[in-house]
């Protein structure tokens, strides 16, 4: 799973058109055309999401390379 790095500004647009993330350390803005819920589940369950849609793998890689998200250990699962 991934988490948003500290310091990142995130704004989900209220018309559900997407969300923007601003990285103050590189001054880069990224806009993703997904809703906040979709984004959160993508970070949380990245393995599953990437298995279903190969291209999501690139998205996560890209965000990680840009210093916006970072991999973090998965929380203990009950399964």
């Amino acid at each position: 799973m991934f988490t948003l790095k500290k310091g990142m500004q995130l704004h989900p647009f209220s018309d559900q058109s997407g969300l923007s993330i601003y990285n103050p350390f590189t001054t880069e803005i990224i806009t993703l055309r997904i809703t906040l819920t979709q984004f959160e589940s993508l970070l949380l369950d990245s393995g599953k999401a990437c298995a279903e849609h190969a291209e999501l793998h690139h998205v996560l890689n890209d965000l990680s390379e840009k210093g916006i998200i970072e991999a973090s250990p998965s929380p203990a699962r009950s399964s």
């Binding site: 704004h11 209220s14 018309d15 969300l19």
Partner: peptide, 11 residues
């Protein structure tokens, strides 16, 4: 324009 688009163009 949806908000995401308008925001990017404005920025």
């Amino acid at each position: 324009l949806d908000m995401a688009d308008a925001f990017m163009q404005l920025a």
